[in-house]
Design a protein around this nucleic acid. Structure first.
Lengths: 187, 187
DNA sequence: AATTGACTATAAAACTAATTTAGTCAAAAA
DNA sequence: TTTTTGACTAAATTAGTTTTATAGTCAATT
């Protein structure tokens, strides 16, 4: 077995970030976990932040793949929006690394973490926007500013899935679908 | 002129909270500004937090009065929702005390301030909810869970008025009205 | 040519001393 | 009497200092 050093490093860092957060993960720690000299890390990544970026970039890809997996072309567009967004936010709320980072942002306000979470959100909006533009081109939904609509849809889902839970009983996927349908269908 | 000590205290505290925030306002400072011995403050208010509560309670009343002032019974319900919420959030974003408290929450994370801002939000939602229940009773809008709808409407307006500005050009009242109308009228 | 870990400059944490502050209460004023 | 006051205290916060930990480097090693 030829040890793939790069992969060892990424796996070790992912595990450590998930367990201890970004700030509390040291490069010495990562090197030890990866069975690698610390200097080796710096032959693959310019610095700690770049290693973090690579890991989070994979995570976004994974998230989007999960969303894609639940889409069904034969369903109405709004139903697919619900399925995709629900899946993404559920992923976010169950994934150990995302949980830890959200906690770190709230409790310690680590700048690198805030920036990264903002970036993840931007990527989700960009993904949604692209889907919305396609639907508009097809005439499936009326033409309006797709960036604003994506932004607003994500905020609505975050409100119903995450924020609502802070003071009330959680809402099920069906309840959320029902609320969205009710809202979108009339004034 | 018989000096109304209670009012002097409340005015002084309001001014100091607006200028320096909750944490950085000392009771000695308030006493001095109000031309009153420190002990006098404690004959009217049990402690600093209760003084804060009285001031914020007035502010919420003022906010709701501003919203009421722009409502017109002859307009459709959704138009009035827009007018009221826009007014409340605009008030919030222009009022010195609210600006200072939002800044203090973000930068220092003062617990008493976080709790108070949450409370203000809850009061806005309660106000909206009552309007929505009335509209539902009249048959102006379909019957669904008024608490969730209020919560979601406020989140949507905050997203469009405050959050959007963080990365894009601000949206005008008319643009927001247009977006909401577009969203609410179809899928 | 690839890998390493001792090394360094810097940042964070721990500790301590000094200061500040919310709230009290005995005395003064009304 | 009743109301007002500010010196006082215990607790918390801040400022200053020392110690420790860490990101990133690089000469030596494999």
């Amino acid at each position: 077995m030829a040890p793939n050093r790069r992969k060892m490093i990424v796996d070790a860092a992912t595990k450590s970030f998930s367990l201890f957060g970004y700030k509390a993960t040291t490069m010495d720690q990562v090197a030890k976990l990866a069975n690698v000299g610390k200097g080796t890390i710096y032959t693959f990544f310019k610095n700690k932040e770049e290693l973090f970026e690579e890991i989070m970039s994979s995570l976004v890809k994974e998230m989007i793949a999960e969303a894609e997996a639940v889409l069904k072309p034969e369903l109405p567009f709004t139903e697919n929006v619900h399925r995709g967004l629900y899946r993404i936010l559920e992923f976010r709320s169950r994934h150990q690394l995302m949980i830890k980072l959200a906690q770190e942002e709230k409790e310690m306000g680590t700048i690198a973490v805030s920036d990264m979470l903002q970036h993840v959100e931007d990527e989700i909006i960009a993904y949604l926007k692209q889907k919305i533009e396609a639907a508009m081109a097809k005439g499936a939904i009326p033409k309006t500013n797709p960036e604003i609509i994506s932004f607003l849809l994500l905020k609505m889902y975050v409100a119903l899935l995450s924020d609502w839970e802070k003071k009330h009983e959680p809402l099920s996927s069906d309840e959320i679908a029902e609320i969205m349908k009710g809202l979108l269908l009339h004034s």
